[in-house]
Each structure stands twice: as C-alpha cells, then as structure tokens.
Amino acid sequence: MKVGVDEDRCVAAGQCVAAAAEVFDQRDEDGIVVLLDENPPPGLADDVRNAAAVCPALAIRIEE
C-alpha cells in the first residue's frame, strides 16, 4: 500500500488523524494533513482505508 495526500484539498477536519494517527498528523498552524508514513505496514491498512473513506475533502489517495 502506498498513501498520498493532497494538501490543497485538505479542509483540516482531522478525521484522518482520528482514524490512523500512526500514518497522519496535522500541522499546528493550520490543521492541514501531514503524511507520516507513505508506506504503512499491512497491519494499518484497514485504518488507512477508513481514513480515506471518512475524509470530507477526499484528500487521501491509496495505491494498493
């Protein structure tokens, strides 16, 4: 799995961090998503898929 984010689309809702804090964080100054691990381990795959599904801006890309 490879994960990417589109910072320009991000609306700083924080749903990704709630779903997969090991993979996503938010910048302190504006809350925009920060990708911590573009190749998360298989054990986090379901959490990452959930983060992408709940993102209101559809700012998370996943390549399987």
Rank of each mutant, 00 (worst) to 15 (best):
L44K: 14
G14I: 10
R27S: 02
V33Y: 00
D25I: 03
A13C: 14
I60A: 02
V54C: 06
R9L: 11
V23D: 11
R27Q: 03
V3W: 11
K2Y: 06
P40E: 05
Q15N: 14
D30H: 02
D8Y: 01
D46V: 11
D28E: 15
P40W: 01
G14K: 03
D8S: 10
V54L: 11
P56N: 06
D25A: 15
N50A: 12
V33S: 08
A59F: 06
E38H: 10
D8E: 13
E7K: 15
L35H: 15
D28C: 00
C10Y: 01
A59W: 04
A53Y: 02
L44E: 14
D8W: 00
V33L: 07
D30Q: 05
E22N: 09
A13E: 03
V3K: 02
E38G: 13
R27E: 05
V5A: 00
M1V: 08
N50T: 15
P41H: 14
A57H: 04
P56E: 10
P56A: 12
D25R: 12
E38Y: 08
N39L: 05
E38F: 09
L35A: 09
V48R: 14
A57Y: 04
G4K: 14
A19S: 13
V34S: 01
L35M: 11
R9S: 12
E22C: 03
V54F: 14
D28K: 06
A59N: 08
M1W: 08
E29D: 15
V54N: 08
C16L: 01
L58I: 00
C16N: 01
A12N: 07
G31C: 05
N50C: 05
Q15H: 13
K2R: 14
P56H: 09
N39V: 08
G43M: 02
V5F: 03
V11G: 00
L35K: 13
V33T: 12
L58R: 04
L35I: 06
V17P: 14
L44P: 03
P40C: 14
D46C: 08
A51L: 06
M1T: 10
A13V: 02
L58T: 00
F24L: 07
A21V: 07
V5I: 11
N50W: 12
A45F: 08
G43Y: 06
D47K: 09
A53K: 09
V54R: 04
V23E: 07
A53S: 06
Q15V: 00
R49Y: 05
A18Q: 13
I32Y: 05
E7L: 09
V34G: 03
K2G: 06
G43C: 01
P41R: 13
P40D: 06
E38I: 09
A53I: 07
E7W: 00
L36P: 00
